[in-house]
Design a protein around this nucleic acid. Sequence first.
DNA 1: GTGAAAGCGCTAACAC
DNA 2: GTGTTAGCGCTTTCAC
Lengths: 327, 327
Amino acid sequence: MKDVAARAGVGLKTVSRVVNGEAGVSPDTERRVQESITALGFRRNDSARILRKGRTASIGLVLEDLADPFYAPLSRAVEEVARAHGALLINGSSAEDPGREQELVLALCARRVDGLVIVPASDDHRYLEPEIAAGVATVFVDRPPGMIEADQVLVDSFAGAREGVAHLIAHGHRRIGFIGDLPRIHTAHERIRGYEAAMSEAGLPVHPSWVAPGSTDPARVRADAERMLGGPEPVTAFFAGNNRVTVTLVRVLAELERPVALVGFDDFELADMLSPPVTVVAQDPAQLGRTAADLLFRRLDGAHDPPCLKTHPTTLIARGSGELPPA
Amino acid sequence: MKDVAARAGVGLKTVSRVVNGEAGVSPDTERRVQESITALGFRRNDSARILRKGRTASIGLVLEDLADPFYAPLSRAVEEVARAHGALLINGSSAEDPGREQELVLALCARRVDGLVIVPASDDHRYLEPEIAAGVATVFVDRPPGMIEADQVLVDSFAGAREGVAHLIAHGHRRIGFIGDLPRIHTAHERIRGYEAAMSEAGLPVHPSWVAPGSTDPARVRADAERMLGGPEPVTAFFAGNNRVTVTLVRVLAELERPVALVGFDDFELADMLSPPVTVVAQDPAQLGRTAADLLFRRLDGAHDPPCLKTHPTTLIARGSGELPPA
DNA sequence: GTGAAAGCGCTAACAC
DNA sequence: GTGTTAGCGCTTTCAC
């Protein structure tokens, strides 16, 4: 910038004015400055600008896995909102590792992002207290924060799972298996609760072997499913705790002779083209991201109301697999 | 940092040493400094650090759509490599808009990212010349740069499409429709060329109405497909130019009485569970991202060889839809 | 082992 | 309309 000013024979501030499109520069001077800028290939250094201004016009997003078909649209939606507000998105995947989440979040804070959207892997976010006190707006999505108060945008996992399981019960099932994610994950925990609630409301017992929370690793899901399908009293239906589990169960069930019903949490592409088409409890990840990002920017624009909780409903989409009768 | 120094009763530089884990601080002083740091909730401001050091330990990724099932794993792979090198990833979606690509790339440059991975939407990257001259390492993925020389990591779209179409021909098809992306996109163009090559090598004519390049909007794809399926000489097979087109064609073909063969470019989840299972020309987006990011960091570590081109092969995966005979 | 001073590139505040 | 000065928070240099 110094060089540009020297070359154009003007002061530093004049160049700054031109670069930032501020008023108060004569057309002639402006032209001379522009000419020097292109000649020198000058581009403003935003690090210096940020250092001076305090705001970075960037927000951070930390979630489990950018490539997961559930989170990818969420991420994209956050990006769109950020873009509409002239902000860049910096994101990272926590891989469901609390340590990695913290590392990422703190790295983003060191970059002085204006705000954070977090799908937490950790259940203790006290490490964020100094940041929030320092003015970093923070919104939690999909899962609540741990040990601190903050805005949160959630999906009603409990009600969704209860509705999905009740749907299977309504179609005659009595022995229903639940395979879901690790129960330390809030949504997984809520979905187990929803399963149990539906069973108990229908007066049905829940055999401990019918509930298999754990990793979404296909081998684990397959093993648990096969276990539940064997024995003298096999399950006649499954409720899958998320899209990864559903996809694996689709494969397992396709290998069976007898039909086994399936309802999955999360919708997924081509679910309607499988045979049978897969009944799901759908949520809208893009909407989730949009709500969270909107909330974040409202905070950045100075909204100072106490932390709020927004809960999105789920939608049961009956397609066939959830309406199969017990074998 | 000033405050921390004051509170601990030490100099600025000593705090800096502690924060950066540099040697030369007595254990006692270090403890005092650490205590002040936590008490004040201090976190180093990376903007200032970057301003001083010149390197940002962050790289930028610009691609078409973060949420596309093809690009999401690519993005994730780049992130993993960046993480292994201690760098953060800042990314943005160009939405296939050259203006937006440039805007994003320049915003990233203004942030002084150390390097860029770009899936270009534009066909003229001369706007990057000053940046590259200034030392920003740049790698293009999936599509080549326009009007400049730079590293590129591509997939052999031409050979892949040729193989896919030849596969359909080998199964008896003579009238094969091609529905792909906008031909200004390099990969789309190459795939059309591959289609034409396979047809001509088999001595088959290509009726102009059998080739439909355009947007991947489902309505457009459907309309073109239905047009090709009507008339006196309907096509008996389709080659789909990318995963979005394939998914739409799966839906269109499922509504038909007669079987129509299909081979799609790009693999996709559950392709093997559809009926018929979908034959694809697969590429490995994660591998593409990994190669590009590795190359980028090799450049950042000082590799100064001339721009290189790495081409990845495709793999034909026969599953059923591509082996259907002509009706 | 520790600290004081200079300066990274920019913008805010206030001259002129 | 335009320029000058100070300083954002850190690291580098060099002196103690």
